[in-house]
Every structure is written in structure tokens, then in C-alpha cells.
Computed example of a mutant assay.
Amino acid sequence: MNSNNAVVQSPALKILLSVPEAEFDSFFPPSTLAALAELGHVTVVPPEALQSSKAFAEVAEDVEIAITAWGFPRLDATHLALAPKLRCVLHAASSVHFLVSEDFWEAGIPISQSGAAMAPAVAELSLTFTLALLRRVERLDHSLRSGRTWEDARMAPRAREISGACIGVVGASRTGRRYIEACTALGAEVRVYDPYLSADDPLARLSTSLEKLCAASDVVAVHAPQTPETRGLIGRDQLALLQDGTAFVNTARSTIVDMDALYAEVSSGRIDAALDVFDLEPLPIDDRWRSLPNALLTPHIAGATVDSRRRAGQIVVDELRRFLAGEPLEHAVTRTDLEKMG
């Protein structure tokens, strides 16, 4: 959708659809956009065009439903005053920390997010990383590409299979649970660290301490949210407990891990790592991580698949239908929820 103010004609409900222009067609292909247009009068304005108060006011004055994504202005007192008819916010992405404010919560406006759309994609990349590191793919590939001989390349540490391997999962989040299902289906023995697991949770039987998990696992995969409580959760002491040859996978957030301590362990060759997230993004061309032969890296793209984007757009449409029918939002976020969410 290339127009900054494209309008889809339909009924009277005023809907503002504001996702980054580069991602618009991924989230809202024609069929999804048509379904949305059946529910209201849709005005499409990318968030980059709403950054000034004047521009926001011109669009938001009559808006009842705001469909947002990254880059949308923070809904503070100023912006809420410019959108006096706002009844509901449907976030097409995951984290809403940047979007909401105390003034927003005080206004009592319901909000929902589409993080569930990305969970299968993130879990799948985490599984891909797990299998690759167990089979030493990153080391073998680097050896063959860097000019080492065939024989030298074959001298990489002997590969492991996932069946029978001990997989330690930090965080029983949506993605963590999808990852656990996949690993278990492939025959892995899974252990979980999550202090919020209740006694009646199906994963409670797999629960262990973080220290025991680190010491016993062949693979440690991070699936915890980024919160003040999880910042620096895995530090030098925890990483020192990892066995030689352990694989470390992080598709969550870099702040959960002491990245300097992790780099020291990986650069020594003692453990291998696969990372989708970094302290500094975009990752500089000359960043230290890029040269490590036992590190597998991707540019914070775990949740970005064709399928996940389409699911997110569909979640928005389904949530709007529920809201208009007076039904509870399936993916609602409350102030209390946000304390435990990334």
C-alpha cells in the first residue's frame, strides 16, 4: 500500500490502520484488508507519517479503532486528547511497552497484541539453531568457506543428534512452549526454568532451577521475555556451569544474557552459540561476533516469516470482530500482564 492516506470505503466505524509501509502488504494482503474493510471505514496512514502532533491530530480526530505496529506514536495524554473517540487499540506486532502509558491505562481503553502470530516462527528458528549447533553446521560451514582442507573441516567436534539430548529452556513463554513441543517430538529430554510456572501447569514436571538447567543441558535455549526481572538473568556464573560443547541459543532478547560473558565463552571455543538478538542492532559490520567460527548469527528476524505476518493481520481482524460483538479480546493485554511480558 503506497499511499500515505489510502482509504478503503465501507461502513461508518472509523478505523486507523497504521503499520510501516514496507510491511503493509505482508500484514494485510488484499483478502485480509477486504475483511477489515467489511467492519469499518479504513484509513491507512503509515506510522512514519504520524510523528508530528499536527499530522496525528488530522488523522486521529474521529478514529475509534487504531491498528498499530512499530513506530506508532506513544499513546500518552497528548495523543489521547487528539483521539477523543478512540475505543480500542489492536497492535499487529508483539510488544506494546513503547506504545502504552499510564495515561492510556487510566483511560481504560482495551488493547490487544498479535505476539501469538510470531510464536511458531520464533520457535521454529530456535529449533533450527538447535539442530544446526548440535550437528556443528556453523563450524563445518565456516571451515569449508574459509579455505581449510576437507580433512581439517572434518575435525570439528563430533556432532550430536537431538534425540536423547538434554534441552534446557529458559522461559515457558508462548515461543518456549512451541519450542518444547518440537524438541519433545524429536525425542529430546527437556527441562524448564520459569519461576512463574504454577503447580498445575503441564510443564511443572519439567521444572528445575536455572543452575541445574545450565549444568545438565546439551542445549540451553532462551525464551524468556525482556523484563526488569530477567535483565542479566544469565550471567558469568550461569555460563560457567555449561558443559564443554554446550550449544547456547537466544532468539529472545540480548538483555537477558551478559553478552560479554557469553562472548568470552564462545570465543574460547568452549561452547557454541546461535543468536538472533544483540545488544547493538543493527550489528556493526566489524562486530566481534561476526568473525567467530562457532557462532551462527541472524539479524533479529526470527519472527518475520510470510506466515507469521499473515497470521498477525488475521488476528487483528478476528479481534476487531470480537470487540464489535461485545466479546472478550482473545489476545488482550492488561497493565498487570505487561509486567511479565516482553
Results as ranks from 00 to 15, higher is better:
P293L: 11
E106C: 02
V266S: 03
A325S: 13
F24V: 03
S209G: 08
P293G: 00
D272S: 15
L206D: 14
D260N: 13
G187P: 11
A66G: 07
V137H: 09
V59K: 03
E124D: 14
S18K: 07
M155Y: 01
L39M: 08
P73F: 03
L13E: 03
I234T: 02
A77I: 06
D62K: 04
R335E: 14
L82G: 03
V169E: 01
A252F: 10
A325P: 08
A153V: 05
T128Q: 10
M118L: 13
S198K: 14
A199R: 14
F323L: 06
S114P: 13
F27E: 09
G164V: 11
E265R: 08
V306Q: 05
E21G: 05
E330S: 14
K14Y: 00
N294K: 02
R335L: 11
E64F: 03
G269H: 00
T305P: 11
S267L: 02
V222C: 10
T149L: 02
S198T: 11
A273C: 07
L203R: 11
V137W: 09
E23T: 13
A295K: 07
T175C: 15
A92Y: 12
H79R: 14
L17S: 12
A116Q: 14
C88A: 10
S207F: 00
V222Q: 12
D201F: 09
V316I: 08
A261M: 02
T68V: 04
E23Q: 04
I285V: 03
F56D: 02
T208C: 10
R74V: 12
G40I: 03
F28L: 00
R74N: 07
E229L: 05
G313S: 14
A204F: 08
Y179V: 03
G187N: 02
G326C: 07
A116V: 14
G245M: 08
I162T: 13
T255R: 11
D62C: 01
I111Q: 04
S114A: 15
P110L: 04
D76R: 11
L262W: 10
I111F: 02
R136F: 04
M1I: 13
D307L: 04
A240Q: 07
L296W: 12
T336C: 08
S10L: 06
L90K: 11
G115Y: 11
P84K: 01
L50D: 00
F323S: 14
N5C: 12
K340N: 05
A123H: 14
C214I: 01
D152H: 14
R148D: 03
S53D: 10
G303L: 13
V137I: 15
L338N: 10
H97K: 15
P299A: 12
H331K: 15
L16Y: 06
R178G: 04
I65N: 07
I256G: 12
A247W: 03
A69P: 02
L127Y: 15
L213W: 02
M259F: 01
C88E: 07
V96K: 14
A273K: 05
L320V: 00
S217G: 00
N294P: 05
R74E: 12
S146Y: 09
S291G: 07
A204E: 10
L80D: 04
C183T: 13
M118A: 15
W105I: 05
A199Q: 07
A66M: 11
L206G: 04
T251Y: 09
P120T: 13
